[in-house]
Write a protein that binds this DNA or RNA. Structure first.
Lengths: 159, 159
DNA sequence: CTTGACCTTGCCATCATGGTAAGGTTCAGC
DNA sequence: GCTGAACCTTACCATGATGGCAAGGTCAAG
């Protein structure tokens, strides 16, 4: 069978040689055979798997998810429901992330719009960032119930 | 002046003690004074800066960008244009990221929609992932011009 | 004095990827 | 046959922002 060395496998799959070795190390790829001198040898099937991994990465799947996907891919008796479940799960993750970024974007857009952007120092952006309340996370600021060991604020600083 | 130890500063600012130390280490926060026993002491102003940093993080700014923002914040003679420029730049980054995620999402959605999701193994999702062409990046697959040292594919593998 | 909650430093782990260094292998051209 | 370029190997460090743990010191209250 025709085999490729790691560089050619990299070019054929779009995965860098570095990452191919990495995938082997973490067990995502099987350990491939070696030439007598220790060079890795990749079959067309190996390259195929590398492309599968590459495509999965391009869709934003994590390595953990890709491990599962590869497992299902190789199992010709998998139920497609399992694959679909992984996809749906990942769509939800993407949605979550997109929503977060869009929230940031909206806030920034509002602030940037309010900022003159000239030579004067007045800036609503900085003002908002400097505001005392904790905004984005569930708005719990400095006002908490007292805890133990209230501290005496030792004033004798050294240096 | 009333000062807080790192735990109280953390609670007051929403930044973990761990990260407060980290910010100090990387030079984002100034080195604060210490008690005789080595405890860090935080003034209200320090806490204010921590909140500024926290807010900036919440908007997705990188540490590098936050360093710049903090610099502008402290410079009362800054031109607001510089702040606005940073914001605009970050909005562009967010847009970029959002677009990437939305592209992934759209592809996944399409695939998931095409997948039966039942007990049968047939699955368009896996089929697309296993396709030979390199999709998402500029579609250059295995077809490249020959390079040097075409390789003889040494067949004598050991073990 | 003990206890427990805090502080200190330092190191390791994440996740996917890039870089570099030091050394061995292969091959094309001379 | 030799040399040099282009490749391969392993091993380590770095990123960015954060979390975790361990070992030891400190502080306040009982």
């Amino acid at each position: 069978m025709e085999t490729l060395n790691i560089g050619d496998a990299a070019k054929a799959s779009g995965v860098t040689a570095k990452m191919i070795r990495h995938y082997e190390e973490i067990g995502l790829m099987p350990k491939v055979r070696r030439t007598m001198s220790g060079y890795r040898m990749y079959s067309a099937q190996d390259v195929h798997m590398l492309r599968f991994i590459k495509h999965s990465r391009n869709l934003g799947f994590s390595m953990k998810q890709i491990e599962a996907l590869v497992g299902l891919w190789r199992d010709t008796r998998r139920p497609s429901s399992k694959v679909k479940a992984l996809a749906i799960e990942h769509i939800a993750e993407l949605d979550q992330k997109i929503r977060e970024l869009e929230t940031m974007r909206a806030t920034l857009q509002r602030l940037a719009h309010a900022c003159h952007g000239d030579d004067r120092p007045d800036c609503p952006i900085l003002e908002e960032l400097a505001v005392d309340a904790l905004t984005t996370p569930n708005g719990n600021g400095a006002a908490g119930p007292a805890k133990k060991r209230k501290g005496k604020n030792c004033e004798h600083d050294c240096h």
